[in-house]
């Protein structure tokens, strides 16, 4: 009994200090009132912060844009990750380790370094425009950087491994004779994928989608460094409210709203898991 307590104690301590307490503080700030001072808010039981979110469509737009970009990122990641995961799962065990290592390799370089590399590739004087101009395909540099496309490319690249890993884990466990049975019963490979492989790995696909979608929804760095200036994602707006406008209650209310919005798909996924 005491041993069990000792094992669980760090877990509960961790959850209390790093999850429950910050959430409580965040909620307290969201219910406070802005004030000029340090910290720039006063404790109060005010719904003004949340009221602002509803009144000014700017905040709602930022939330919806973030969710849209996150969904597009997760969708693109899924499309790329399925064939990758299938390739890794079907490789010989020795090669498999190598391919998984290659997948994780980018994590060994700094995140900002990778974003920087994309900027170097995409900017007006970058490599891609350089090649296009020297080949005579275009006269003036194409506006590649600071577009929604550039932002998506950066996000997909950053989050792709999170989609590949759960799909790989599911595909490598999938009985290979299932595909043979489908073929034997008249299914061409594409039909077999849609009717057998895809449904049998659906929980993993949802997990992969959420693992990308959730962090992507709050992403700040990539939209800031690669996105168009007018793309006001919730992460950027949060930053501005906290550090530029110093309106902590509104920023905190926005953060709480994002958290609640992201809890919905997580709960749905858990229900789905429990059913299957």
């Amino acid at each position: 009994m005491i041993g069990r307590l000792l094992v669980l104690l760090p877990v509960w301590a961790w959850l209390l200090v790093f999850v429950a307490a910050p959430a409580a503080i965040l909620l307290a700030i969201a219910l406070g009132e802005a004030d000029s001072g340090i910290p720039p808010f006063r404790l109060a039981w005010s719904l003004a912060g949340f009221g602002m979110l509803v009144e000014d469509s700017y905040y709602l737009d930022a939330l919806l844009t973030a969710l849209r970009i996150a969904a597009m990122t997760a969708g693109c990641c899924l499309l790329i990750a399925y064939p990758m995961a299938m390739g890794i799962a079907r490789a010989a065990p020795g090669r498999r380790v190598l391919l998984l290592a290659a997948l994780m390799l980018p994590f060994w370089t700094g995140f900002l370094l990778r974003v920087g590399a994309w900027i170097g590739l995409l900017r007006d004087e970058g490599w891609i425009n350089g090649v296009l101009i020297s080949l005579g395909i275009t006269d003036a540099p194409l506006p590649l950087l600071y577009t929604e496309g550039a932002m998506l490319v950066g996000m997909v690249h950053a989050y792709l491994p999170f989609a590949v890993l759960p799909l790989f884990a599911a595909l490598v466990r999938l009985d290979p004779t299932l595909g043979e049975a489908a073929a034997d019963l008249g299914a061409r490979p594409a039909v077999a994928f849609v009717t057998v492989t895809l449904p049998a790995t659906l929980p993993a696909a949802i997990a992969a989608f959420l693992l990308v979608f959730i962090p992507a929804a709050g992403e700040f760095v990539i939209p800031e460094l690669m996105g168009p200036p007018e793309a006001q994602l919730v992460g950027r707006v949060l930053w501005q409210e906290f550090f530029q406008n110093r309106d902590w209650p509104v920023a905190a209310a926005l953060a709480v709203a994002l958290l609640v919005l992201l809890l919905v798909p997580i709960r749905l996924f858990q229900r789905l898991e429990a059913q299957s």
């Binding site: 004779t177 043979e180 049975a181 034997d184 049998a200």
Partner: peptide
Amino acid sequence: TPPWARPVNMMFQSYALFPHL
């Protein structure tokens, strides 16, 4: 001829039933 185009069917040792169906 690929397996899906053969009028031959097989029962697998592991049965290979589709778990989601």
